[in-house]
Nucleic acid binder design. Sequence first.
DNA 1: AAAGTGATTGTAAACGATTACAATTAAGAA
DNA 2: TTCTTAATTGTAATCGTTTACAATCACTTT
Lengths: 363, 363
Amino acid sequence: MDIVFALKFIYIFALSFTNPDSMKKYATLKDIANALKISTATVSRALADRWDVNAETKRIVFEEAKRQNYKPNPIAKRLQNRHSKTIGLVVPEFKTSFFPNIISGIQKVVDEAGFQLLITQSQETMEVELRNLKLLENNMVEGILISITREGENSDYYQELIDSEIPIVFFNRVSSSIEAPKVIIDDYKLAFFATEHLIYSGFKKIYHFAGPEKLSVTMERKRGFLDAMKKHHRDISENSVLTTGVFSDKGYDAMKMLIQKNDLPEAIFCFNDPTALGALKAIKEEGLICPDDIALVGFSETELALLVDPPLTSVQQPSFEMGEVAARLLIAQITQNPVPEPETVCLIAKLNVRKSSIKVKGD
Amino acid sequence: MDIVFALKFIYIFALSFTNPDSMKKYATLKDIANALKISTATVSRALADRWDVNAETKRIVFEEAKRQNYKPNPIAKRLQNRHSKTIGLVVPEFKTSFFPNIISGIQKVVDEAGFQLLITQSQETMEVELRNLKLLENNMVEGILISITREGENSDYYQELIDSEIPIVFFNRVSSSIEAPKVIIDDYKLAFFATEHLIYSGFKKIYHFAGPEKLSVTMERKRGFLDAMKKHHRDISENSVLTTGVFSDKGYDAMKMLIQKNDLPEAIFCFNDPTALGALKAIKEEGLICPDDIALVGFSETELALLVDPPLTSVQQPSFEMGEVAARLLIAQITQNPVPEPETVCLIAKLNVRKSSIKVKGD
DNA sequence: AAAGTGATTGTAAACGATTACAATTAAGAA
DNA sequence: TTCTTAATTGTAATCGTTTACAATCACTTT
C-alpha cells in the first residue's frame, strides 16, 4: 500500500517536475486550453455551452474538461460577476428546536432561489454576534438574516451594513431602532392571551418569568402580561415579574428561589419553554405538583412541550413559516429593483392549552 | 409612516442621481491610488503596514482609506493567495442539543485557528447531504467535518473529495469504508454497559430500539446490546430488536405498538434520547409507569434527560470535546506538512444512571 | 568622480474566469 | 472577381489584490 502511494507520488512529482512547488489542486481553463491548443476564451464559451462555438469544439472541450476533472473556480467567478449568491444567517443559539425549525424554512427558500446559506450562532453574546456579522461581511454575503441577542449595542453596525447596501431582515428578535423588513408574531397579544387564559382558569396569584432585558420580545411579552393583569384588576407586586433569561437553568433557579422564599404563585407565565421546563423540574424536586400547586405556561413551543409530564401549555409559533417569510423578504431586497419598502410581517401564532395550566378543581 | 418611507426613498434616489448604474458598493485599492495619485502597489503595501513604505505615505493612505471607507475585497484576496481559510461542516440535523453542542466545540477551535465555519444540515437524507458537500466544495472549503446520515451511498463522493485534496474528518457517525481521521466514542462498549446495567438491576425481558440501518453507530450499539444479552444468557427473540430511527415519534409509535400487541418488555435500551422520550410519552399515555412497568435507557444525553419525569438514564457523550477534537484533527490535516496519518480518536463516554432505569423493588 | 547603499515607489504579471471586440475563414451574392 | 455575411476563434481587458522586479533618487564610501 505504502509503496503504491510512494510510486504515485513520484509520478505526480515527475509530471510537475518543472516546478514542484506549484503542484496544482485544480485544473483551470488554461490547462484545458493548453492541452487543446486553443484559447481560454473558447474553452470558457464552450463550457458555458454558448451558441457561438463549434459543436465539435464543444465536444472535445467537454471531453478534455472531464479528463482533467475540471471544476470552475467559484472564487474567480465571484470576482468576475461580483455577487456571491450567498446569504448569511445569525441566530442566538440552536440548542432548542425553535431556531433549527426556522433554519429549515430559510434553507428551503434559499435553496429554491439558488442562493447558499452561511449559518452562524452568536451564543447569546453581543461580541460573538458582531464577529459573526463581520465574518459574513467578509464573505461578501448579499444579505443577512438575523435574530438578535440583545437590543441596542450592535445597532450601529446593523445600520452600517444596510448603508453599505447589505440588506438585513430581522426575525423573531428584532431591532426596534432599525428600519428594515421584520418577521415577528404578535408577542404582546399572545402574552396577553396566555395570561388571560390563566386568569380565566381561576388562578389567582400569577407571576411572569421574563426574558433577557433589552429585547423586544421580552418587553412585548411582559407588556402583554401586565396589561392582561391590569385589565382583570389583579395586583401586580414587585415580585410579579422576575427576569430569568432564556436557559432552563435560570427557570430552575428562579423557581427554587421562590420556593425557598415561600413566595409561591399559583401560576407562572414563562418567557419560553426552556425556562418553564426548568421551573417544572424545580417544582417536582420540591415535591410540588404541576398544575395542582403551580401551573405553568411556556412560549415558542418546542417538541419537548409534548414529551414532558405534564404536557406544557405553550404558544406555538409558525417557526418554519417564519424562516420562509424572512428568507423571501431578504431575497426580494437583494434581487428586486427598485428595492421593496421594508415591511413588518406579523405571523399568526396560537396558544396550545395542555395539562400544565389546567386547574384541577375550583376552590 | 408610508409617506415618510416614500420621502426617504426619493431622497436616496436623488443622492445617487449622478450615475445610478455605476453606483459602487465598495471602494477599491485603485480608488485610493487614484485619489492620492500613487500606484495601487504602494497603497496595498501601505495598508499591509510593510516596512518598505514611507511613514508619511502610510499615514495619508490610511487616512484616505478611512475617508473612503475602504474594506479589502476578500474574494480578490482569496483568488490571490488561493486558500479560503474556511472549513465546512455537515451534520444530519440540529433538533436536539447533541449536534449543537458539538458545533460549539468545533466553533471554538476553528475560531482560534483563524478559520471560518460553514454549517450545513442534511436533514437525515442522502440527497441533501450530497448537495451540501457540493455546496461546500463550491465554496472552496479547505476541509470538511461530517457526521453522515447513512453508511454507503455517498462514500464514493467522500473519497473523491479526499482525492482532490479536500481532507475530511468524520465524527460521531463515521464511514467505515473510508480511510480518514475519525472521532467517536466506544458505542459498542457503552451499549454493552447500558444493557448490563439493566440486567444487573434485575430486569428480565429487555428490548432494544435500534437506530437507522446502515449506520455504524446503530450497528455498534446493537452489537453491544446483543453481546451483553448473550453474555448473561438472556433469550434473544425476534422482537428483541426493533428498528425505530432517530426521532421521538418513532419511539412513540414503536412503544404504542408493543403495548397494543401486549408484548411488554421490562426495560428498553433505546438508540437515543428522543426515541426514549417518545417511548416514555407512550408509556404514560397508556397509564403505565416508568420505571415500575417499563424501564428506559437513552443514549447521547441531551439536557432533556434531566428535565423529564422520571429523569432519563442515558449515555453522556463528551459532545463539546468531540467537536474540538474533530476540528483540531481537520486543521492538522489542512495545515501540517506532511499530512498526518489518519487516526481514529475514541473519546470517553459514561452512563448516567437515573430514575428511569432503577428497579423499584425486587420481585 | 565613480561606485555602492538604502529608502521609496512604480511596472507589470499573476490568481481564474468572463466577455467586448477584432480577426480569420469560407461560403454565397453581386 | 469583389463584397457581404455568418461562423468560429483569438486578443486583451476586466474583476481587486498581491508581489517580484526594476527604477529612481539621495546619500555614502572609496
